[in-house]
Nucleic acid binder design. Structure first.
Length: 456
DNA sequence: TTGACTCAACATCCTTTGCTACAA
DNA sequence: TTGTAGGTTTCCATGTTGAGTCA
């Protein structure tokens, strides 16, 4: 450079962007977003996710940049998908937001289709990150069919990188620092997972300027969605199941059924709950916030009474969640819906097996092997089975055949879990019929609060 | 290649009375 | 004056998953 205008070189190095300045750029380093400067060597380093910001800042200041960060070449990708109106709007909103941000769309609304359209529109090497092997296989099939080229896979025993690659969160976490310069776009499926302490590193170590997050439920109770906003972008488009019901998703009803504890269960529940509340009263923990709960957990490590209280609470939870009259109510529901396709959800593995034995229902829990699981879901799909009972396994990331009746026998207070379970019955019905979700709640127990919480 | 196993990571786990600080 | 949002961060238990190891 013959004149005194500043000049900067950017390179990718193990999950970071290295910034090298010439003398004329002295003083610039410290003012760049995310950069930790070493003034003596005129170099600095920023986490790779700051790359897009860095580029924009340097461009705004008319700094000459030798950009060597991305080792990517443009790709020509085309798709035949005809987007629905809300999918077109979602894509447009994302592009308008600078090709960063999250789409919050219900299960079954075709989030994948929007992502494929985004990939085709940008035409850059793309990494798709997914939470389960099941989703890894689904995306791989979909992308291979759509774009024709071989698709890379990271996870499930495969470690093959291609310009279009699908990875599990776990594999992406293990490989992100050496793959960070290979992709111009990264798609995070079920992006709420990115809030986990470890997984968020994936987004930090990748330089990809374009970022797309997909989820049905963005907000996290621990507030970690704010970190996701920093790393991927805010929610730029949102649709609730109610918005699409009747048109692109099945119309649905939610029916709450209250049951009571048997006298024996009530006695046991009150005794266990009493052990818990007595300890709270005597220990000065008032349970006004989540931090009080953590305090209790902390104490239970050293204080036997705290441990006893926590265990009692756990047992009380089991009593209310697995109440005998829920099982009787389920018998009536199954009887009423002989002609329907029913999925039963519970919070406890034990109950799944009890129900499986009593009603001769095929059961799926985390103990069910991949092969057996495929077989059960296959039979449910082709109609040989019309009922399935599952613990928490079918909530997300599994291609579950459509049903029209869901029974939530027990569940957590998680809004996400509830939304995902509801999503299992929302595929539009051939006869235009409505979907129905039963929610069984034990009266006069903490479950009333749990149920209220998950409904938002 | 398959299955059985271990390990690590992640998520939920809690409350309903009235405290404190601050915004409208 | 009235209304409302915030408070907090370690490891009791159960459930689930992916990765890695070994036979």
């Amino acid at each position: 450079m013959s004149d005194a205008s500043p000049h900067v070189t950017l390179r990718f190095e193990a999950g970071t962007v290295r910034v090298e300045c010439d003398d004329a750029a002295d003083g610039l380093l410290a003012s760049l977003p995310g950069v930790e400067a070493d003034p003596r060597s005129l170099t600095g380093r920023a986490p790779a996710f700051c790359y897009a910001d860095l580029r924009a800042t340097l461009a705004a200041r008319d700094v000459a940049v030798d950009d060597r960060v991305l080792a990517t070449a443009p790709r020509s990708l085309s798709t035949d998908y005809e987007l629905r109106e809300y999918q077109r709007e979602a894509l447009a909103a994302w592009r308008e937001a600078g090709e960063r941000g999250v789409l919050e769309l219900p299960t079954g609304s075709g989030k994948t289709v929007v992502a494929v359209a985004a990939m085709a529109a940008l035409g850059v090497p793309t990494l798709v990150v997914v939470p389960t092997i099941d989703l890894l296989e689904q995306w791989e099939r979909e992308l291979r069919t759509e774009f024709g080229d071989p698709v890379g896979c990271l996870g499930g025993g495969e470690q093959r990188v291609e310009p279009v690659t699908v990875s599990t969160y776990d594999s992406a976490y293990l490989r992100a620092d050496d793959l960070g310069d290979r992709f111009g776009l990264v798609v995070f499926d079920e992006v709420h997972h990115l809030g986990g302490e470890g997984y968020r590193e994936i987004a930090r170590l990748l330089a990809a300027p374009a970022r797309l997050g997909l989820t049905a439920t963005f907000e996290r109770p621990d507030g970690a969605h704010e970190t996701i906003e920093e790393l991927v972008g805010p929610v730029v488009y949102r649709r609730d199941p109610e918005d699409l019901a009747g048109d692109h998703l099945a119309a649905f009803d939610i029916k709450r059924v209250e049951v009571s504890l048997t006298p024996a269960e009530r006695e046991r529940y009150d005794a266990l709950q009493g052990t818990f509340t007595d300890y709270l009263a005597s220990s000065g923990i008032n349970m006004r916030s989540g931090s009080d709960y953590r305090e209790l957990v902390k104490r239970s490590g050293t204080d036997p009474r705290a441990r006893e209280a926590l265990l009692a609470k756990q047992r009380a939870r089991e009593v209310m969640m697995n109440a005998e009259r829920k099982v009787e109510e389920l018998a009536a529901i199954l009887d009423r819906h002989r002609e329907d396709r029913v999925i039963v959800f519970t919070a406890y593995t034990d109950l799944v097996y009890r129900l499986s034995e009593r009603f001769l229902l095929p059961a799926i829990t985390h103990e069910t092997g991949a092969e057996e699981r495929r077989e059960i879901l296959g039979r449910f799909r082709d109609g040989r089975y019309s009922r399935v009972v599952a613990a928490n396994v079918l909530d997300e990331g599994v291609d579950v055949p459509d049903a029209n009746v869901a029974v939530v026998l027990s569940g957590s207070g998680s809004e996400r879990e509830f939304t995902q379970r509801l999503g299992r019955i929302l595929r539009p019905k051939a006869d235009g019929g409505r979907a129905l979700l039963y929610e069984l709640v034990t009266a006069e127990t903490a479950e009333e609060r749990v149920a209220a919480r998950r409904r938002g």
